[in-house]
Design a protein around this nucleic acid. Sequence first.
DNA 1: ACAAAAGTGTTTGGCGTACACCCATGA
DNA 2: TCATGGGTGTACGCCAAACACTTTTGT
Lengths: 251, 251
Amino acid sequence: MPKGIILNSENYQPGLSIDCVIFGFHDNQLKVLLIKTPYDNKWSLPGGFVPLDQDIDTAAVTVLKERTGMKGIFLRQFATFGKVKRNDEHFGNAVLEYLQIPKEQGKWFRQRFVTIGYYALVDFLKAIPQKEHSQEIIEWIDHKEVPELILDHALILDKALNTLRIELNLMPIGYNLLPEKFTIPELQKLYETILDTKLDRRNFLRKITNIGILTKLDEKKNNVAHKAPNLYSFDKDKYEEVLKNGLNQGW
Amino acid sequence: MPKGIILNSENYQPGLSIDCVIFGFHDNQLKVLLIKTPYDNKWSLPGGFVPLDQDIDTAAVTVLKERTGMKGIFLRQFATFGKVKRNDEHFGNAVLEYLQIPKEQGKWFRQRFVTIGYYALVDFLKAIPQKEHSQEIIEWIDHKEVPELILDHALILDKALNTLRIELNLMPIGYNLLPEKFTIPELQKLYETILDTKLDRRNFLRKITNIGILTKLDEKKNNVAHKAPNLYSFDKDKYEEVLKNGLNQGW
DNA sequence: ACAAAAGTGTTTGGCGTACACCCATGA
DNA sequence: TCATGGGTGTACGCCAAACACTTTTGT
């Protein structure tokens, strides 16, 4: 929240917030969009409050649009966090001080906030981090080099990543994180990064093409060291279909 | 909430509730614990509010304990529901009227409630539905014969069941829903009921025993028509281990 | 004896895994 | 020409799916 703009707590769902874990993929790294808090040396997930007249999903979409300039993005609720101690007193006071809110009026910030976690998958190149004001620092950070986060945001991030790992088995994912045209090795790197393992190239190719959502383009990536890899795109229709039905049925 | 006992809204997290989808298994039916609303011909999921000094998970445990008399049960948060319109005006007024609360003081009930959904798996025979007061009607109802529910509870129930279906592929489940000693056909019926399909007996046996969490007992079920099936129990240690690591790794 | 449910084994096909060779390109 | 990464194919093993016969027990 920008300094000086005091939110009217009457207009928001009390004690409830949204936090978004926004994932992007670039330079073979899984990145997370984080915001530096001005009053502390910690970072935070982009988040917001829930207007009384907005669905929680809508509020999450709003956060995403404000922070990436993008609409119609893959966005999914994954968990809600509501430990009594998740707002520590220290945090509340630091915010109040920074925003110069008298303590009596600071009830809003010191109450326990229950926060609903959403994670989003976005095309790194299309999502331009948006500052809410000129001094704000908002950056893509490699998920392996995440600095100290406020509150329980580390826990939230962790849970988001875990959810992503599990959902990777239930649905194809690259569609949202890669540009329209991409190569199989790029897609594989994405999977490897998310899962934090190495995968076999040949087996990966077979498995991913067997899903039937990829279209091999008659085009190769250029300006590239070594042999030029083939470009692919997602078959949107088939992708949607698989999304609905799921991948690994199991039983 | 029992008639006449007016809750002090000061003590609860505003605009937030817990709803529990409590599953049991009996007579080859997947059952859900539901409560009849006194002021309407609809039913509702057991739920409650979140005391300011309680974690949301704790509040869910409390609901479960109040309603089944059981502690230490399988309980899992699965989604949070917060559409603006999920509290319809009509519902709020009906509650207020029944509880004889003046409309001015009824702000608490007419605000939009965001509700956190939990689902629980319990041993039908051990969980005795607990009334909060003598007139209350609380019953196990076959999930295929669920009557009309208030608000968006049908949606919540649906989502819970869907989550259960998905998690069935990630972990063994019968442990929580069956008595200590059970037969393979019973376990199979449970799976069939949850998934709403028929499974092959022989393949099911192989698959389920291959997981390595079952102990074949030297004992058969008696007082049963036809050939007496063997009794099994879960190997708690191995079960816990599998729970941690998950079943279908996928990638 | 018969019906209904339980126990058991085999075959087949597909998918996951492991692994090796050739090709294209920039340095 | 060499190093690096990309593309392709094959053999093996396991698991899942399909399927039939025997056993037990109550009626």
